[in-house]
Every structure is written in structure tokens, then in C-alpha cells.
């Protein structure tokens, strides 16, 4: 998990739940393995290097340069230094977008991921046709495209007729008239509800896959030792899925920070009343697409990248230290 390379001999193995005594015995006995060529990792990564060199580095450079320019169509541009950045950082709309995005990121980390994991645990039992069906049911929202999601949620969130309003009304005898997509206070909650519907099943798949590699015998041993369900989860299951959980946390964070399509579709290609559905990428989009100001858009892109990178590295570092502590 840790980003730093580990010294040889102190491999992941030692902490891995898979460690079997036979394997440990062999590596500590120091049987000599044929050393691999130093070029091996680079060869494995060759396709990545080629694709990145051709399709990523130039656009990246282009976007970087652009962030310091103002452009007008294809032929004209002028150097403006840090003006694009300073404009963005002084724009109240940017902070509004930042706030909305953070709200969404927090909700997806603390609401959606635990739900995904919980459902994965529930559905991770032995062969069971019924559970197969539930897995499909919960994953099913991912089978459809964005346009359908737009059509659907416009219908769900309408006051009086919306199915969601009707459901809330049937449960709590109130809320039939709520204008989910027309009320600044309710736009982000509506987006979060829609995202729960869409993405809970998505992340469940990763957790399900990760759960398959939990050593059943370790769980059994823990059960025999008298560990409760919660204890078993904390001490066996969680460490076993930690690497994949890190992946899910990091990619979900990156994804949440890039939230755009969902609110944009829900709000009919808009940003909601009083920009209540404006996200950072939506803000960027306003420059790139609504205003043809690619320079400022690139600057927003860089600010976003630095932001996400900071958060992701903290997450990876955190998950690394928790492993060390054990």
C-alpha cells in the first residue's frame, strides 16, 4: 500500500493474510531465485508508456501552457501569467462549486462506499440463486446510459407527480410538493440520491471481487477462537480487502471531484437555481464550453488536479500507515 518501495525480505507477505507457513519457510530459507532483468517492469509498462507519450503528454503540455494564456480561436493568444489562476481563486462561483463538490465527495465516501461494502458483504454468500438476482438488481442502474438517467430523474423528482415525492409522501405524509431540482437547498441532496442509485452497485462489484480472495480458513479460525462477526470483519475481512478498498476510495474520490455529467443531465444542461448544482468541472465547463475561454478552463483544471492529488495522496498515505501500525 505504501508508495515507498519496501526493503527486500520485508515483503507484503509478512502482513498478508495469505501468508502460509510453507511459503514463509521457503523465503526465509533464502533459496536463490534467478534474478530478473532490470528492464522487465519497463517492458510490462511499455504499452502504457507508448500510449501516454502519444496521447497524453502533448495534450498535457498544451493544457499546461494554455493555463497561462488567453486565447481567441485558433490563431491568437497572449500570455497573461497567473491571471487565469488569480481570477478563478477570487471568484465566488468557484468556491460555491468547490463547496458543492466537497459535499458530494464526502457523501460518496461516507454514505455510498459503506453502503456498497455492506451490500457486498450481504451478497457475498455461498451459491445462492436469489442472491444472484439481487446482485443484478443492485448493479442494474449501471446498465443504462446517461440519457435515460436524465429522462428518469426528471420524472422522479417532479413535485406532485414525481415517484420519489410520492414515495416520500407515502412514508412521511409530507414532502409531496418539494421541488427537488428547483430548490437550491435540495439540488445537491437530489444529486446525491441519484448518485447512490447509480453507483452503489458499481463499487459493490469491486468489493465483491476483493472478498473472493479472503482466506476462508482464517475466518473459520477466527470463528473458532470465538471472535464475533464485527471482530472477524475488522481483523480478517478488512485487512484482506484493504488494497482494493484503497483503490475504490481513491478512484471514488477522483470521480466525485470530477462530478459533472449527473447534475448537468438532471438539471437539463444547467447548473441549478443559484448555481446550487454547480461543481468544479461544471465551473470549468462554463469557461470551456459556454464561454470558449480555454485558458481559464485549463487553469481550473490544474487547480482541480492539485486538489485531488493532495486528497488522494493523503488517502494512500493514511491507508499505508494503518497497515504499518498493525
Amino acid at each position: 500500500m505504501n508508495l515507498e518501495p519496501r526493503p527486500p525480505g520485508l515483503q507484503e507477505t509478512a502482513r498478508s493474510p495469505h501468508a502460509s507457513s510453507r511459503a514463509l519457510a521457503r523465503s526465509s530459507a533464502g533459496a536463490s531465485a534467478r534474478p530478473y532483468a532490470a528492464s522487465a517492469p519497463y517492458l510490462f509498462l511499455l504499452p502504457y508508456f507508448i500510449v501516454t507519450a502519444v496521447f497524453f503528454l502533448y495534450p498535457l503540455g498544451y493544457a499546461t501552457v494554455l493555463a497561462f494564456f488567453q486565447t481567441s480561436g485558433p490563431v491568437r493568444r497572449t500570455f497573461v501569467g497567473l491571471e487565469n489562476f488569480s481570477y478563478v481563486l477570487n471568484d465566488p462561483d468557484f468556491y460555491k462549486a468547490l463547496w458543492n463538490t466537497l459535499l458530494f465527495a464526502v457523501a460518496s465516501l461516507f454514505l455510498q462506499l459503506p453502503l456498497s461494502l455492506g451490500l457486498a458483504l450481504l451478497l457475498n454468500a455461498r451459491q445462492d440463486r436469489l442472491k444472484g438476482f439481487f446482485r443484478l438488481a443492485i448493479f442494474s442502474p449501471n446498465l443504462v446510459g446517461q440519457v435515460f438517467v436524465g429522462i428518469l430523474f426528471a420524472m422522479l423528482f417532479t413535485p406532485q407527480y414525481g415517484l420519489f415525492n410520492k414515495l416520500v409522501f407515502a412514508l412521511f405524509n409530507t414532502g409531496l410538493q418539494e421541488r427537488w431540482l428547483g430548490d437550491p437547498a435540495l439540488v445537491m441532496p437530489a444529486v446525491i440520491i441519484a448518485s447512490l442509485w447509480l453507483y452503489v452497485g458499481f463499487n459493490m462489484i469491486y468489493f465483491l471481487a476483493a472478498l473472493q480472495n479472503i482466506d476462508q480458513s482464517l475466518l473459520e479460525a477466527a470463528r473458532i477462537d470465538g471472535a464475533g462477526a464485527w471482530q472477524r470483519f475488522l481483523n480478517v475481512t478488512l485487512p484482506g480487502i484493504a488494497p482494493v478498498a484503497t483503490f475504490v476510495v481513491v478512484t471514488s474520490t477522483i470521480g466525485s471531484f470530477q462530478l459533472f455529467e449527473l447534475p448537468y443531465t438532471l438539471l437539463r444542461q444547467g447548473y441549478g437555481p443559484n448555481n446550487s448544482g454547480l461543481t468544479i468541472v461544471g465551473y470549468l465547463y462554463q469557461f470551456a464550453f459556454d464561454g470558449a475561454d480555454l485558458g481559464t478552463a485549463a487553469a481550473v483544471g490544474w487547480i482541480l488536479t492539485l486538489l485531488i492529488l493532495g486528497v488522494s495522496l493523503i488517502q494512500i498515505r493514511l491507508s499505508g500507515t494503518t497497515r504499518k501500525d498493525r
Binding site: Y62, A63, I254, V281, G301, L309, S312
Partner: peptide, 16 residues
């Protein structure tokens, strides 16, 4: 690699 995931595609569209 992680950083490259974070750059919004809109910015890269024209050069791409």
C-alpha cells in the same frame, strides 16, 4: 498516473 486521472477531459479535448 493518479495525477493523470484527475485532469478533466474537457481541457484535453482540443489537443487530443
Amino acid at each position: 498516473m493518479l495525477a493523470s486521472l484527475t485532469i478533466p477531459g474537457v481541457v484535453l479535448l482540443a489537443p487530443n
